[in-house]
């Protein structure tokens, strides 16, 4: 009989403490919900809710983070190293050599090859970052864009080449003429 009443009171005490605990969290969250501050850290700050309202707020990504690839095509010397090192073969390059130097990259390297096609299939990409490591002109970089979902998987194939179809035909013409001339010599 004694334990019967002891049980009742210990359970009531437990229920009271549980209610107080949730009340504390309730007040804390109501205060935090009016807090407009964005989340900049992975661990929620003290006195804040754990909700991250993603499209409106976003976590800052680390500087070394490996996300969507970007190629600065003006700096690209079309050396094909990235294609060779890529473990999943997601980069496709079509190169058209030129008879003479066609320009300089921003770090002073000479460009001798036109990039007729420079496609990276982000759907295949494994974000290992090897291509950015081998890139001699550092034109291939990993940006901090990580939200690039699309409705059609083909849209994940990003083209970086800027040459028009006419330009491609012309440069091919120039190169084939150059080759012909070499044969005739």
């Amino acid at each position: 009989m004694f334990t019967y009443f002891k049980n009742i009171f210990s359970i009531l005490e437990g229920l009271r403490r549980a209610l107080q605990l949730t009340k504390k969290h309730l007040y804390k969250s109501i205060r935090a919900s009016s807090n407009k501050k964005n989340h900049y850290t992975y661990v929620p700050e003290a006195g804040n809710t754990i909700t991250l309202q993603y499209p409106h707020q976003a976590l800052i990504v680390p500087k070394r983070g490996r996300y969507k690839l970007h190629n600065e095509i003006d700096d690209c010397i079309v050396c094909d190293k990235c294609v060779k090192v890529c473990p999943v073969d997601c980069i496709e390059i079509e190169a058209i050599p030129a008879p003479e130097v066609i320009g300089l990259t921003s770090n002073g390297m000479k460009k001798r090859i036109h990039a007729a096609k420079f496609d990276i299939d982000m759907a295949k990409c494994c974000f290992c970052g090897l291509c950015t490591t081998v890139c001699p002109t550092a034109c291939l970089t990993m940006t901090s864009t990580y939200d690039f979902s699309v409705f059609d998987v083909l849209e994940h194939k990003v083209s970086f080449a800027t040459m028009s179809e006419q330009a491609i035909i012309d440069t091919k013409q120039v190169w084939s003429e150059h080759v012909e001339r070499g044969k005739n010599l």
């Binding site: 969290h25 309730l26 969250s29 109501i30 919900s33 809710t49 754990i50 909700t51």
Partner: peptide
Amino acid sequence: KLAAFIQDRLGPMEVGYK
């Protein structure tokens, strides 16, 4: 909303004001 606040979340926020 109450459930969310008790669990340190925000609850529905997108449709209409809060």
